[in-house]
Design a protein around this nucleic acid. Sequence first.
DNA 1: AGCGGTACTATACGCGTGTATAGCCAGCTG
DNA 2: CAGCTGGCTATACACGCGTATAGTACCGCT
Lengths: 227, 227
Amino acid sequence: MEHPVGDPAFEDVTARARIRDAAIRLFAEHGIDGTTVRDITQAAGVSPGLLRHHFGSKEALREACDLHVLNRLVKIKEELVLEGKVASPGFLPAVHPTILLSYKYVTRALLDGSPSAAAMFDDMVVLTEQWISKNAPDVTEDYRAYAAVLVGMQSGILAMHDHVSRALGVDIFTTDGHLRMAGALADFYSHSLLDPEFVAKARGAMEPLRAPNPPTAAGTDPGAEGA
Amino acid sequence: MEHPVGDPAFEDVTARARIRDAAIRLFAEHGIDGTTVRDITQAAGVSPGLLRHHFGSKEALREACDLHVLNRLVKIKEELVLEGKVASPGFLPAVHPTILLSYKYVTRALLDGSPSAAAMFDDMVVLTEQWISKNAPDVTEDYRAYAAVLVGMQSGILAMHDHVSRALGVDIFTTDGHLRMAGALADFYSHSLLDPEFVAKARGAMEPLRAPNPPTAAGTDPGAEGA
DNA sequence: AGCGGTACTATACGCGTGTATAGCCAGCTG
DNA sequence: CAGCTGGCTATACACGCGTATAGTACCGCT
């Protein structure tokens, strides 16, 4: 393309970059379907036609945003890992506050079915699986499920940001809110919540229900609603 | 007009109930905005005008669906609690498979901003907070955040069902898939994943980055004494 | 100066959406 | 039977959407 992507100072003034950044912000906030091209172009201060001129379509713009955010994320993470500045990923936003928007965007992208975000999710599952088998091999016998659950919860709690923020009284996509959430998350990771014996007992009791035929439509639809 | 096949007892239910049930299924699958009234009425085998006749508007239909699902959920839970059939909520779908659709619906409702679902979320946070302070008072110093995180993760992992299911190779909204996920979840709840000392150290290192005003909820700011 | 191309705007088209309206038909009631 | 009520359909309206197209201003090049 005509635009040198490597020069951030130049790109930031470009209308193309303004459209992309506005789209990232609006997509992160309201999702793909909840954002119109007119919303984006108005936020960027340009006409709707220019979006098509630069990106071709809304879907192509979305892919461009996906790539931009994902690249920014890996760049920041690489940079911080190299500098050894951060001890735990949960506290990362304290060092790099701008990453919160990227988190929000990726979370929405996961919900909106973005292939790029899904690929990132899969990568994180694999990485987590490897980490568990190496660093905490005794926590489970099902590494795959454990890793999937772990990554799913990590991203899922961000998907529930509205409700978690309401319960906390502070937006978890601000530095303060995110830190408070990360603190509870750290407690969660470092302390056992349930008694292993109790869990094992419950699991054993429920096991016979798995293999045999589950109850059919016998208990279906208790509310026939004749009103 | 031809009826969609595969739906048992299709004729037995009133058109109003068919519309509601079709809406619940489609809302759970594609969300509110991803479902058109024509989709619903076609799935219910009626004309679009009938939806308006019975429910007034799409929004009113959504509220009716919210109430119906939520009532069904509390009814099932009460029933099972009374019968003492279930040891852990995670294994509940093994006993009552039809609850999985309700789970899926409520999860989507949370993402779509349903007030009823949000109220349910808040209730669960309060209940969880009370449970923690009574049954596991030592896992954290910030009960509120811990409870919010717990409920947020529980619902959030369901919000990420597409990705978790893909990682597991099985749909977590089937009985088998849900049981596998619940198993990993049980492991997660009953074993400590991180070393508490390491977490405390990381928390202390990050503490100076926090903004001047610490949260003022239950108890003192966790890790405030860290260096 | 003249030319070509690119950034950008104004405007419109086609479509799908939620919603509104008019009318049909069965069943009950007098 | 006549008349009315309510479940139900067919059709249309107004609007917002993504997208397409025609046209304009500006900049570098020869």
